[in-house]
Write a protein that binds this DNA or RNA. Structure first.
Length: 346
DNA sequence: AAGTCGGGGCG
DNA sequence: CGCCCAGACTT
């Protein structure tokens, strides 16, 4: 019963789908995997330059597995969700050590690997091996909730289960790679979140949302809640060579594993820290930096201290080091911090 | 089942 | 400025 739905979509895909994405060239499991991880919660146009740089630096799984994780994070700066980069690196090492460097070719084994969940596992099976597997990403959820007029927030368990069943039924055994690409392309270019191009849609006649004039209300939005605002005080400590003191953040939590400025809960704590280091210079207040996360807003209050050449040596450690401007591309930094440092050096 | 993780696109 | 995006992981 699924063949008609799939065939209709494939006819549209052959004429109007995206056939020139970088990971569609020299297609192999490694390139497909990296692209799928980058594309989690991130749009295609944003991913493309990151993917190109990544493949230039790490052309093969072996290159990635053998690299320091800091270099992987450096290439990830600005993409967000940095646990993806850590899991990617970890996964490369697991496949190298436990799978003889060969990717599994089934969803069950793939979904055991770090950073690979049900949808990404299916996407790899479909895109890399052209084997039948159903995906359920944001695009597919949007397309299916509209065509079948399924109300309720798709993140809700019951709705998601229903969508998985539907996606599985509709997924064909033939041309599976093209089909999964087709339904994502339809979601990205025609069945868009805002201003969908229903007049150009190949599924117009069977789209229940269109028939019922409910396209704009589907998929159902998530119930919203208040977003808290937090503040932090950051120390921009520069030595006489204009090197900046950075410390590596904990691997878990916000900006996990990235190098950032030392942070304090108040200006008082920042100044106490300086005093303990034997630094008695005035900390100069810099313009505050605002940054928005999906779940809270952060205001950073940076304070600058420039040490003179005769100031006593400040100790380094594994987690606290001095960095020069030219080293910024070798480590992972949070975007707003990187911007702030470039302002300082400019 | 709900919360966490992030930067960018877009109206 | 608010909402959304080729989700996975933790609790």
């Amino acid at each position: 019963m699924s063949t008609h739905f799939a065939q209709q979509l494939l006819i549209w895909f052959d004429a109007h789908g995206r056939h020139n994405l970088p990971w569609q060239d020299n297609r192999n499991a490694y390139r497909v995997w990296v692209s799928e991880i980058m594309l989690q919660q991130t749009q295609v146009a944003t991913v493309i330059p990151y993917f190109e740089r990544f493949m230039e630096r790490f052309p093969t799984l072996t290159d990635l597995a053998g690299a320091p994780v800091d270099e992987v994070l450096a290439l990830w700066t600005g993409l967000g969700y940095y646990s993806r980069a850590r899991n990617l690196h970890k996964c490369a090492q697991v496949i190298t050590e436990q799978c003889q460097g060969k990717f599994p070719n089934n969803t069950k084994e793939l979904a055991q690997l770090p950073g690979i969940g049900p949808s990404t596992a299916a996407a790899i099976v479909s895109q890399a091996y052209n084997k039948p597997a159903a995906i359920l990403d944001g695009n597919v959820k949007r397309v299916l909730t509209r065509i079948f007029a399924i109300a309720g927030w798709p993140g809700q368990k019951s709705i998601e289960t229903q969508l998985w069943e539907l996606a599985t039924k509709l997924t064909p055994k033939q041309r599976n790679a093209d089909y999964t690409q087709a339904i994502m392309d339809l979601g990205a270019t025609i069945c868009r979140r805002n201003k969908p191009l229903c007049v150009a849609c190949p599924m117009q006649t069977e789209c229940q949302a269109l028939t019922q004039n409910r396209v704009t209300e589907l998929p159902t939005r998530k119930a919203k809640k208040a977003i808290p605002e937090k503040q932090t005080w950051a120390l921009l400590l520069a030595n006489h060579e204009h090197k900046i003191q950075l410390h590596q953040r904990a691997h878990k939590g916000i900006w996990g594993g990235l190098w950032s400025l030392p942070e304090f809960a108040s200006l008082n704590e920042l100044q106490n820290h300086l005093a303990l280091q034997g630094i008695h210079q005035h900390a100069k207040c810099l313009p505050q930096v605002k940054h928005a996360f999906s779940h809270y807003k952060l205001t950073i209050h940076p304070y600058l201290v420039e040490l003179s050449a005769n100031h006593g040596h400040i100790q380094e450690s594994a987690l606290v080091q001095w960095y020069a401007s030219k080293q910024m591309d070798t480590i992972g930094l949070p975007s707003p911090i990187k911007d702030m440092l470039q302002q300082y050096w400019a």
